[in-house]
Design a protein around this nucleic acid. Structure first.
Lengths: 336, 336
DNA sequence: ATGATCTAAGGAACCGGTTCCATTCTGGGA
DNA sequence: TCCCAGAATGGAACCGGTTCCTTAGATCAT
């Protein structure tokens, strides 16, 4: 049986209240008593029951981290970094994988309120914005959204300027002489939609007509299997673009493989740009030109806001927007 | 303020005990009362406080998942799969990243006992075996070790036959005509030590003398930075092996890049074999020949044992050992 | 009609802490 | 010497559930 505060009380002939004061340094205790209690705790190897303390204090020192899919290195890194920051402040993270399923996301957010976490960090939610807002309002704990719909006003958010990022890619490719630039996506997250908007706006700004047949969208599941029939079709029919802009590195890396299988060379036949700058982007061959997303900064800010809220500090909702930048590697070159 | 069981009791003029019976179906309740209570709960949107219930029941329905580094896709996948299985049984996972730091691992295991989890799944522990065993015995909850020292007898374990895996690699490379086979590792986990043993035994079985200068070991941090000066040195000096056996895919993928930078072709100049068969192994160019580790099966079994223990079913400690197999891709070829 | 049996429900203790409030003890100033 | 402030401690309520034990009332056989 576990040793409790009562055992210590009995052993030292001191009341629970005093023991509690010793543990938490929350009141005056004589030197003599303190020593006796400390020694007894040592001797019985006493460790306070966190559950009981949580019930009493009405705080659990845990935060829920909700994300789409931890197998995606982008999320894995975000999770790792967030966990480290939270731990530094005495919190522990409960991860909640949503697996790209809006229903699970909703269920996860709903359950968070009762799963007894002090706050929620939600990375890259995909549910309809209205649903997210409602769910967040129902659970009475602070929530910070990272990488989400930039329109959300009622909740603290940290976002990347995806539109700007999309424009960066187009500007860069056009500067290399490309005009037939495909955009490959799943239109799944609002981040992808932002990048797509940046793609369109970038083309327009350069006076290039948008060719709808160059926009290729297919579900995440298909990408997970590493396939993209629509792109293959486009190329086989001789309509190959001179450059491909993939909505994230995860897809870009799969495209590297697909093109390789078709016997096409990157960047000699087709240039390829990704988005996110995940670890693997620097590891594949050729090294992937991509947009660097300062996810660590975004998590930094998100966690900072969340902790502030959990400590009860109110204030107007915050909306940070960070700018990405381009990282040039070997997957792009001048069009010939 | 959150609505509690007392609010329901007050509203319905029924005692807490009866409400509890309705919620848990744990005793006879008349149809009339049941309806009234259910309706009241519905109306006030009542959700039981999980913390209070945990305190009372002395179980939290959470399990700690301890791993080295979730950024490593191997662990990320294991974590994802484990989380899914646990969720199916009503548990939720608290991940605990140890970041390749034995001290943190020890601290993590120690804290688990008080962090109020019902059980622990520990994947790829690296602490000294004796310390792990002691820590596990101190916390009075079930622990299952996955991918650990196969010598541990007192704790349930699930392991890969790493020695066999190492032998597979050597057998395969020798069958392609290789005799100068380097082994690249960090000697960090007991899995790596097992693979190294398999490497040695495999060479011996084929009558090839082990050349100590072909065994390259460096810390994990260095690998994370993507560097390996010792290997570079070996090659620059003209002592390049004809094949490299990397202790895991994580390192193998970094070696792909290093060799590329040296202008060496895989597999034409050097063959490369990894270990683990992570997702990225199929994605890099050239596709990585590697040893497939059925991590999903291992997690399956680990979780099954853990749940059994958490449900109180005793029995002799279990020690499962699974056999890996070779997956041939494009990073290996006959020596010329 | 009466006692046995069973169902429905309430009361109180309990899980293991925290905290407010009351009480005792101590020393210093008048 | 007496009084009072402040330090040290104890007691009890509380957090929000679960569960054992009792009791009231209904049903049934004798």
């Amino acid at each position: 049986m576990k040793v409790t505060i009562n055992d210590i009380a009995e052993l030292t002939n001191v009341s629970k209240s005093t023991i509690s004061r010793v543990i938490n340094n929350s009141g005056p205790v004589s030197e003599k008593t303190r020593n006796a209690v400390t020694e007894a705790m040592e001797r019985l190897d006493y460790k306070p029951n966190e559950i009981a303390r949580s019930l009493s204090l009405r705080r659990t020192m845990t935060v829920g981290v909700v994300m789409q899919d931890i197998r995606n290195p982008y999320y894995a890194y975000a999770c790792w970094h967030g966990d480290r920051l939270l731990e530094k402040s005495g919190y522990s993270a409960v991860i909640c994988n949503v697996d790209n399923d809006p229903e699970r996301e909703q269920a996860c957010l709903n359950s968070m309120g009762h799963r007894s976490v002090d706050g929620v960090l939600c990375i890259g939610p995909q549910e309809e914005t209205a649903n997210i807002v409602r769910a967040v309002e129902e659970m009475e704990i602070p929530v910070v959204l990272v990488d989400t719909d930039p329109e959300i006003a009622k909740i603290d958010t940290v976002n990347l300027d995806n539109i700007y990022g999309g424009q960066l890619v187009v500007d860069y490719l056009v500067s290399l002489g490309h005009r037939r630039i495909a955009f490959v996506t799943s239109d799944f997250t609002s981040a992808e939609r932002g990048r797509r908007a940046g793609y369109s706006e970038g083309l327009e700004a350069r006076g290039i007509d948008l060719d709808p047949s160059l926009i290729i969208s297919q579900g995440e599941g298909q990408w997970h299997r590493g396939e993209c029939p629509a792109l293959m079709e486009l190329i086989r029919k001789g309509n190959a673009p001179t450059a491909i802009f993939a909505s994230n590195d995860f897809k870009a890396i799969r495209i590297v493989r697909l093109l390789h299988r078709l016997g096409l060379s990157i960047p000699d036949d087709i240039s390829l740009v990704g988005f996110d700058d995940i670890d693997a982007a620097a590891m594949v061959t050729p090294g992937l030109t991509t947009i660097h997303q300062p996810i660590d900064k975004m998590i930094d800010i998100g966690v900072r806001i969340l902790i502030k809220r959990m400590e009860g500090r109110e204030g107007p909702t915050e909306h940070e927007v960070l700018r990405p930048w381009l990282v040039e590697r070997e997957s792009t070159r001048k069009v010939r």
